[in-house]
Computed example of a mutant assay.
Amino acid sequence: MRARRLHRATLAGLLVLPLLGVAGCGTDHPALTRDEATQQSQRLVQDIAQVFGQAEVINPKTLSVSCDSLFGNSGEVRYISGAFNIQLSLEADAATFRTVRDHWTGLGWKVVEDQYKQETRSGAVSLKDPDDGTNFTLVSTNSPHLLAVLSSSACYRETDRGDRN
């Protein structure tokens, strides 16, 4: 039952990202292909998991989303919206979120959101790459050993109608 709730939360995250307008479309001349954008999204979450050492990425989900609101109604410019869970060996706490924030800001990423509530042991940190608009939010879940990552890749230009899945 718990796994089903987490799975639903992951899928809900995929649906919410496009509504929030967090697309990584930082340019009106996207240079990526869909495969490159998908790989970028998958590498990003693996890199986040590596910051924790012994952590495993589970329940990966990606979806191609139109950047229509930014580039008109053609649907040709898209980004990859990703929702992932990271299984931790230790319980997440304030230091968990600080570690991710400090690591990514050290790489030049900008903090969009950073919060942690000790009384509920819940937190979120959102960061964005100022160069290409790639971004992610790391949030706590109802399990102290499981974090959720919602991400948006840089944009890519659709080359084939098959790119819209």
Results as ranks from 00 to 15, higher is better:
2 R>S: 14
2 R>E: 15
4 R>G: 14
4 R>D: 14
5 R>M: 11
5 R>V: 11
9 A>P: 04
10 T>K: 00
11 L>A: 12
13 G>Q: 04
18 P>M: 08
19 L>W: 07
19 L>M: 15
20 L>N: 12
22 V>P: 03
23 A>G: 15
24 G>F: 00
25 C>G: 09
25 C>H: 09
26 G>D: 14
26 G>K: 10
27 T>C: 09
28 D>V: 12
29 H>M: 15
30 P>K: 02
34 R>K: 09
34 R>W: 04
35 D>I: 04
36 E>H: 08
36 E>V: 06
38 T>L: 08
38 T>Y: 08
39 Q>Y: 06
40 Q>Y: 01
41 S>N: 12
44 L>P: 00
44 L>T: 03
46 Q>G: 15
46 Q>D: 13
46 Q>M: 08
47 D>S: 10
47 D>A: 09
49 A>S: 05
50 Q>V: 13
51 V>T: 14
51 V>E: 02
53 G>R: 01
53 G>Q: 02
54 Q>G: 07
54 Q>D: 09
56 E>C: 00
56 E>M: 05
57 V>M: 01
62 T>P: 00
62 T>K: 01
64 S>M: 08
65 V>Y: 09
65 V>R: 05
66 S>M: 04
66 S>P: 03
67 C>F: 01
67 C>D: 04
70 L>D: 11
70 L>Y: 07
71 F>P: 00
71 F>M: 05
73 N>I: 12
78 R>P: 02
79 Y>Q: 04
83 A>L: 04
84 F>A: 06
85 N>T: 09
85 N>R: 11
87 Q>D: 03
89 S>T: 13
89 S>K: 10
90 L>R: 08
91 E>S: 06
91 E>T: 14
93 D>M: 04
93 D>V: 01
95 A>H: 09
95 A>T: 14
96 T>R: 01
97 F>V: 12
99 T>I: 14
101 R>Q: 11
102 D>Q: 11
102 D>C: 05
105 T>R: 05
106 G>P: 00
106 G>V: 13
107 L>Y: 07
107 L>R: 09
109 W>C: 03
111 V>Q: 15
111 V>T: 15
111 V>Y: 01
114 D>N: 13
114 D>A: 10
114 D>S: 15
115 Q>S: 14
117 K>Y: 13
118 Q>F: 11
120 T>P: 00
120 T>Y: 10
122 S>Y: 13
122 S>N: 15
125 V>L: 01
126 S>L: 02
127 L>M: 09
127 L>K: 03
128 K>T: 15
128 K>D: 14
130 P>Q: 12
131 D>T: 11
131 D>W: 09
132 D>A: 10
133 G>Y: 03
133 G>Q: 05
134 T>D: 01
135 N>Y: 08
135 N>V: 13
135 N>D: 10
136 F>S: 07
137 T>L: 03
139 V>I: 10
140 S>G: 02
141 T>Q: 01
142 N>T: 13
143 S>N: 11
144 P>F: 00
146 L>T: 05
148 A>N: 01
149 V>C: 02
149 V>Y: 00
150 L>N: 09
153 S>W: 05
154 A>I: 08
155 C>K: 04
156 Y>T: 06
158 E>T: 07
158 E>Y: 07
159 T>P: 00
159 T>L: 04
160 D>G: 10
161 R>I: 12
161 R>K: 09
161 R>H: 06
162 G>P: 05
163 D>T: 02
163 D>Q: 01
164 R>I: 02
